[in-house]
Design a protein around this nucleic acid. Sequence first.
DNA 1: ATGAAAGCGCTAACAT
DNA 2: ATGTTAGCGCTTTCAT
Lengths: 346, 346
Amino acid sequence: MPATIHDVAARAGVSVATVSRSFTAPQTVRESTRASVLAVATALGYQPNRAARGLITGRTGNVGVIVPDLGNPYFHGVLEGAQSWARAADYAVFVADGQESAAEEEALIAAMGKQVDGIVLCSSRLPPARLATLEPEPTVVLLNRRVPGLPAVVIDSAGGMRQAAGHLAQLGHTRVAFVSGPRHSWSNQQRLRGLRAAARSHDLEVVTIGPVQPQFDSGVQAAEPVLRTGVTAVLAYNDLVAVGILSRLAELDVAVPAQLSVIGFDDIPLAAMVTPALTSVSAPTALAGKAAIDILLTRLGRPASPARAHDIRRLPATLVRRGSTAPPAALASAAAPVRAGTLNRA
Amino acid sequence: MPATIHDVAARAGVSVATVSRSFTAPQTVRESTRASVLAVATALGYQPNRAARGLITGRTGNVGVIVPDLGNPYFHGVLEGAQSWARAADYAVFVADGQESAAEEEALIAAMGKQVDGIVLCSSRLPPARLATLEPEPTVVLLNRRVPGLPAVVIDSAGGMRQAAGHLAQLGHTRVAFVSGPRHSWSNQQRLRGLRAAARSHDLEVVTIGPVQPQFDSGVQAAEPVLRTGVTAVLAYNDLVAVGILSRLAELDVAVPAQLSVIGFDDIPLAAMVTPALTSVSAPTALAGKAAIDILLTRLGRPASPARAHDIRRLPATLVRRGSTAPPAALASAAAPVRAGTLNRA
DNA sequence: ATGAAAGCGCTAACAT
DNA sequence: ATGTTAGCGCTTTCAT
């Protein structure tokens, strides 16, 4: 039987109120009494019962994180960041997998409801109208999603995409493909927006393939359609899709980046593990997870209120150049003096 | 303000006890009253407050899962299995990352202690002596670890390794390398044990490299040492290491499987994504996670007792043959008639 | 600065 | 079958 506040009070010769205060409002109790209380508490291995505390404070000391797919490495970064930051603030983290389904996500929110003080909704599959009606119970923070009035941390995918497209343009590509993610995905819309903007300013022609599910297999299947378009480079919705493309290209004996440049998105650990290593737009996922928890805990301290400016955190994405991008085949040959003649004849 | 049991009782014209019973012991209340209570509850959006319930039952309705590294895909399978099975039983899952550290794991267990009814410890980094003293508070289930008296679900790595080594022997390999995982890792010991047994029965010579950390980079660094041993095949501690090896081999222009066969372990999603796709020993991780929760919930119903036979669950591992294994170069050439003469001269 | 006492929302005896 | 009531362990007025 674990020690209760009464055990500590008895052994320390004080009332339970004093013990309680020693923990929750240290400055209101005399230094010496507090010291002895704490000593007894340690000796007894006493730890306040969170459930009992929660019953009266209305706080659980828990936060929930709901992701659409635990199997997606992207969210591991988020989870790690959230996890460690929450723990530092003495909060525990519930994790749940929404299985890419709005209904499941809804059920999860309901189930978590009473057990957490707030929820971080990652890449929510819920429609905007529903998201807007979520607060004030529970308190939520969106990650990779924007809905007016709700706090959010968003990664600047559009900016990242601009860098990626700019990189390709600089290498000499003039016609590129984009393998699109789920049409209604907020992230996909951002990426597409960034791409369109970059295309205009760099005179890049973009052909879109998809939409596809953000998974490896989708990439495998998208490879040939991409090839058929005759582009010299392809931007994938995310790394999983990009690696799928890479995989199929290897089977087809299409050399990357010599014959086709490939760019992924998110820079998950996998991106650095494949051959050639994947050029990708790095999303600071751990930072995002941390920021989400940060906003959440801050908001918990305030009465329910619409998101202020400070409750929207924008994180930059940056291009990481690896081995999967190079100048298009034609230019590469042109650059090689021996082949110059050949090129002219072509 | 969420509805309480009193609100429901008042509106339904019954006592709080009846409301409580309608939820926790439906058969003890008349069908008609229960129906009306439930109707009122739904109308009011009433959901029992778990904290209050826990205070009295001593149960939290939560279970914890501690993994050594959230970034390791191996544990996602486990997490998904645990997650979904727990939710089906109306339990919520806390997830925590022990960061490959015994100290951190210890801290996590202490922190979770009061908030969960039991903990699943995955590939625990804690010394056996410490594990043995964990119970009865909290109730724990080990995953991929065996300690006398503690319930556990273990994947038969030794058996998987035997299949892997047998596969290589059958292909004609006679000398293979094993890139060992952490020396004190229980899993590593199992895998090594299986390998040794298979080596004896198949007349396979095994050279061991390592130990190394179970990560991609370790594989990258192990590739050249493996090459130097002159073996025709290599078994890696796990897929992450195997893919690292693959990656470095590609840089070195060593053809897989033509010049070197590579086998991984765990069959994480990544294994199927690389080129060539990795032959690997498949571990039923989701099943393992599910089994762990299953045992845990069963044990929660019983008074603390040493693990019975039923509390040890063994899951088989199976070899998945993909593109990274083939007969050794010499044999492959021998099989090709044109080269036979060349071979004889060698 | 400390103590006494009233609950937080719920379940589990114990009555009826 | 249902109601009454005493807490579970804690925080928080309100007194002292």
